[in-house]
Computed example of a mutant assay.
Amino acid sequence: MTTRFPRSLPLRLAVALTLALVSPLSRTGSTLHAQNAPVVTRDSVVARLGDLRRIHTPDGIELLEAVAIEGTTQWVSVRGKHKSNPVIVMIHGGPGTPMMPLTWAYQSPWEDFFTVVNYDQRGVGKNAVAANRDALAPTLTFDQLVRDAEAIVTWARSRLGVERVVVMGYSYGTMIGMSVAQRHPEWLHAYVGVGQVSGSGDDYLYTRLRELAQAAGQRDALRELDSIAPYPRPGAPVSTVLLTRKWARYFNGGWYGKPTFDLLFAMPSWAPEYTNADVAAQTAATQWTTRTLVGRGGSMLPDSLAVPVVVIQGRHDLHTPYEPARAYIERMRAPSKSFVTLEWSAPVPMLEEPGRFLQQLLNVVRPLTGAAQ
């Protein structure tokens, strides 16, 4: 699961990276200038990204609005080129790490073939700035997150005029998505898991990390991993999870080919859906959400679902490890099952292999909706 706390990319660096693509830079005080060009700010960069992604088709849909759910406001994005396309409702993971501010980097091709709904869960993302944490804290449980997801699916079905949707769970969100599928199969065309949680992933992860560290002669890794043994264990602090994920990334089990998630954690700074205040609030919101949820339990993963199941998993995934996820899906009972392996991905395959990920959405998922090919 993606549990590391994100750190937003400083705005100056974001501007510098953008301008470096088009012209030389000079620095005057604390402001970056392109030679003979106006100053470029974060607002202008994200405005251009927003304009690039604008839905222009006459029967398309592009919404960004707040939805009232059980005493909270939860922001929802709906995007698609054609309203007749099947609907995907994405349930993000973390816990507390929204996908909405990452969608600018990978989702546009999906929108030719699906209407895609993303929402920020209670207290995080665009909800964080106005959140009352004292009031929110008692409600922040796994069961409540499932009820929130049910409310979002109900809202999407009504708002978009469809009987069924595809529920796509990502990482921690796979547990929420499976709970929705188990409780309301009549709402779903299919359940899709990305970075599928298996229930035995952390046991596998610890053993695998020690094997990789020994093979590489990485003494620092062995020392740090030994310091948290036995792992996993009930009541262990969040820091033990963060430590294993740090070494998972080092050994190519995060973003394949990148030893850290720094780029992933930087991407919300460029999200057209987010204001400066949203970006600034997100790090603390994710930290608070994770600390609050720890120890409050979750849900037993189901042995069967009454809807088709598709899992798209990166071969190198160590955050939600590949091997236990594959074994879990092999045991599961469902009307149909597809376990899709992306060979050069870890836990973020939509960014690591975006073309192949889209290919699976078209070849495996879309036919389950009855949509014309």
Rank of each mutant, 00 (worst) to 15 (best):
P10E: 08
R12Q: 12
A16D: 10
L19S: 10
S23K: 09
R27G: 03
T28S: 14
T28K: 13
S30C: 04
T31D: 13
H33I: 03
A37T: 06
R48G: 04
L49R: 13
L52H: 10
R54F: 01
P58A: 13
G60L: 10
G60H: 05
G60F: 07
L64Q: 04
E65Q: 13
A68V: 12
T72C: 09
T72G: 02
V76E: 02
G80S: 07
H82Y: 09
K83L: 13
S84I: 00
P86N: 11
M90D: 05
H92W: 04
G94I: 02
P98N: 02
Y106G: 00
W110N: 04
F114S: 06
F114V: 10
T115C: 13
T115G: 04
T115P: 00
N118H: 15
Y119G: 11
D120P: 08
Q121P: 08
Q121G: 04
G123F: 03
A131Q: 13
R133A: 08
R133K: 06
D134S: 13
T139P: 00
L140H: 02
Q144R: 11
Q144L: 01
D148I: 04
E150K: 10
V153W: 05
R157D: 06
V165I: 14
V166E: 06
V166C: 01
V166T: 15
V180W: 08
A181R: 05
A190F: 01
A190E: 03
Y191I: 05
V192Y: 03
G195D: 05
G199I: 11
D203V: 14
Y204K: 10
Y206S: 05
Y206T: 03
R210K: 15
A215S: 15
L222R: 05
R223L: 09
Y231I: 04
Y231G: 06
Y231K: 07
P234F: 11
A236Q: 15
P237N: 10
P237A: 12
S239F: 08
V241P: 00
T244D: 05
P259Q: 07
T260A: 12
F261D: 10
F261H: 07
D262G: 02
V279P: 04
G297K: 06
M300Y: 00
L305R: 04
V307F: 09
P308I: 09
D317W: 04
D317N: 12
E323G: 01
E323V: 15
E323N: 07
E323T: 09
P324Q: 14
R333L: 09
F339N: 11
A346L: 02
A346C: 11
A346I: 11
P347G: 05
M350I: 05
L351M: 15
P354F: 07
P354R: 07
Q359R: 14
Q359D: 14
L362D: 07
V364C: 06
R366V: 01
L368A: 04
T369R: 06
G370L: 07
